[in-house]
Design a protein around this nucleic acid. Structure first.
Length: 590
RNA sequence: GCGCCCGUAGCUCAACCGGAUAGAGCAUCCGCCUUCUAAGCGGACGGUUGCAGGUUCGAGUCCUGCCGGGCGCGCCA
């Protein structure tokens, strides 16, 4: 059940081969000139270059072999040797019937499923989530869903930072404020003991409030900093009081993070953190040492990762600091080892800010050297930063960082306002209205992000994102909801879908767009670039909207109505599927 | 200083191993609701793809240099 692009591609390949031209050049793509054709192949041009032959001659010969293909209504040669293919309406109708009957809406599954782990790059315990965390979660979630849908076994790991200096700072700050907690920290003797009631009173709001203060004071006050470092070391040595208090920090943070992320339609399979691999570090260091990879340098222990042909000298991986402690990269390397044992992934995708590209290159090289992963199994997909409309990293109007939860609420409020303005959902129960506003808000935020290529930075413009007109998430939801409304009415009137017939231009375009789904998915999958899928979802919505405007459905004659209901149903299924892969949920009505 | 990324319409962004006339949305202007949701549809306007060379039948895409912007460069994570 392949798409037209592929099946026609196979036909053109066969024709190329029969003409003694390398078949791999016969790539068929959607036409650049929809006025002339549905699909094109530029292969004759490439072949002519390689074989030293005339491109038009090759194209003419190939076209002669395709003339009798019943799926094609015309085969023409244009320009220097473009092969222009137009698909017969009957073939389009047949393909539409296929897509309509397919639960996967015309999408193929991966031929060889792999085990894939998606690392979301880790929010930190106690550091509030801000808009900078938005991209990692939005892109990571989409990549996870995309890989899972294509058939891979996928695990998404939050991988949050829960084991560093910020924990020592917080332990100190909480103890300073609560003498009873400080006393308990001194007396507890079992790190696995139930969390005492006094500790359970510590909330995320407390951590949010204390962390900036403690962090600032640690920078100014060496005594304060030294105590925080000592507490960090105590925690890492599993000092019972510190450890139990830390468990409380971790628990309240995880609950809040899970809630905030869930509101965004982002859910993790694993809640692993840096602390989970701490126990592996001594063993790993011994292993690196035994493999002769560890080198003493300036009092620290490092792994050199420079390679011949590097354009510059890459810094080494710092495994043990001169103070004897594990570093950022140490934990990342241990995590690779841990994942190999727990899951043995074929591919690990790190969805992290582009600024950390060098860091990951260093860690990956060290992992390859140590044999914790095979070359190429670790991949960092970087993304650009979110800037404000002034081009600088995003700040609120007051100049502070915008918390993720506040951003979601702001967008949701805008969604409510716009829904009311448009008179949408006004007769619905309050809970459903609120649910719709939430979905509209998430769609707006996610689609705005995912329609950009992840590698580039983009401007975060709240006003534009909440305008909800044109190429936006809410537009996509609106189209989906219009189809749902239509299908409900058809059901109520007893109108049944039936075989597709393609006659109108809008119908042709809709079917061709439906057919392009698998290609968009494949591109998004191969490049780890959800914007290809976002683009398809938009085109599909547009194609549907034009069809909806041009082709009356319920008032059409029964056979035509049945055909159009099938098209509408297929469009809806594919659109909802695409939206789901982008991490966007669709309401039933609005 | 070295390295990485980016520069496309007034603004925000696309562009399928190099292909035909570089596409969308916003903004501006003009049309379309007594028929399935107008957050919609149709149309107009808008480009020397930062600059200069090179490779190629063909370059936004590849190569070189320059200009402009962002980011990174061992004991934070």
């Amino acid at each position: 059940m392949s798409d037209l692009k592929r099946t026609l591609g196979e036909a053109v390949e066969a024709a190329f081969a029969a003409e003694g031209v390398p078949a791999e050049l016969a790539r068929v793509t959607a036409s650049d000139r929809p006025d002339l054709a549905d699909f094109q192949s530029n292969g004759a041009l490439a072949a002519a270059k390689r074989l030293g032959r005339n491109p038009r001659e090759i194209a003419t010969a190939v076209a002669g072999r395709l003339k009798d293909d019943a799926r094609l209504s015309s085969v023409e040669i244009a320009g220097p040797g473009f092969l222009n293919l137009k698909v017969a309406d009957t073939a389009l109708a047949a393909r539409a019937d296929q897509i309509a009957a397919d639960p996967r809406a015309g999408a193929e599954a991966a031929a060889a499923p792999r085990r894939v782990l998606v690392d979301y790059g880790g929010p930190n315990v106690a550091k509030p989530m801000h808009v900078g965390h938005l991209r990692a979660s939005i892109i990571g979630e989409s990549v996870k869903r995309l890989y899972r849908f294509r058939g891979d076994e996928v695990v998404g790991d939050a991988h949050f930072g829960d084991w560093g200096y910020q924990m020592g700072l917080l332990i100190g700050a909480v103890c300073d404020e609560n003498p009873d907690i400080a006393a308990l920290v001194g007396t507890l003797n079992d790190k696995d003991a139930p969390i005492p009631a006094a500790f359970e009173r510590v909330t995320l709001a407390d951590l949010d409030r204390l962390y900036p203060m403690a962090s600032a004071r640690g920078k100014e006050d060496p005594t304060y900093r030294d105590r925080a470092r000592k507490l960090t070391a105590d925690l890492q040595a599993h000092h019972p009081g510190c450890y139990v208090l830390w468990r409380q920090f971790r628990a309240v943070t995880q609950v809040a993070l899970a809630r905030d992320f869930h509101a965004l339609g982002v859910d993790f399979d694993w809640w692993k953190g840096e602390s989970d691999v701490d126990h592996l570090i001594p063993e790993m260091i011994a292993d690196l040492d035994a493999k002769g990879l560890l080198v003493d340098d300036q009092g620290a222990r490092i792994v050199r990762v420079a390679r011949e042909g590097d354009k510059r000298e890459l810094p080494p991986l710092l495994v043990v600091s001169s103070e004897g402690s594990a570093m950022y990269g140490t934990t990342d390397l241990a995590t690779i080892l841990d994942r190999k044992r727990a899951f043995d992934p074929h591919l690990v995708i790190y969805c992290v800010d582009q600024r950390q590209a060098d860091h990951f290159e260093i860690v990956f090289r060290a992992a390859y050297l140590a044999g914790y992963a095979a070359e190429g199994q670790l991949e960092h997909i970087g993304f650009g930063t979110m800037n404000g409309t002034d081009g600088k990293p995003f700040k609120t109007r007051e100049g502070g960082v915008l918390k993720l939860a506040d951003l979601i609420e702001t967008t949701r409020a805008k969604a409510r306002e716009r829904l009311r303005e448009a008179g949408l959902g006004e007769d619905l129960p309050p809970e459903e209205f609120e649910d719709i506003a939430g979905k509209v808000a998430v769609a707006a935020l996610k689609f705005a992000d995912l329609s950009n290529f992840r590698g580039t930075s983009y401007v975060f413009d709240l006003d534009r994102f909440t305008s909800f007109e044109g190429k936006t998430g809410p537009y996509l939801l609106y189209q989906a909801v219009r189809v749902k409304s239509l299908l409900r009415r058809a059901l109520a009137e007893g109108a049944e879908p039936g075989p597709v017939a393609v006659t109108e231009a809008a119908e042709r375009d809709l079917v061709l767009t439906l057919d392009a789904f698998d290609g968009a998915l494949a591109e998004a999958y191969d490049k780890k670039a959800p914007n290809a899928l976002a683009e398809h979802a938009y085109r599909l919505s547009q194609a549907f909207s034009k069809f909806y405007a041009a082709c009356p459905i319920m008032s059409a004659e029964p056979e035509l109505r049945a055909s159009r209901l099938t098209l509408a149903g297929a469009a809806l299924r594919q659109l909802e599927l695409a939206l789901d892969l982008l991490g966007v949920a669709t309401p039933e009505r609005m």
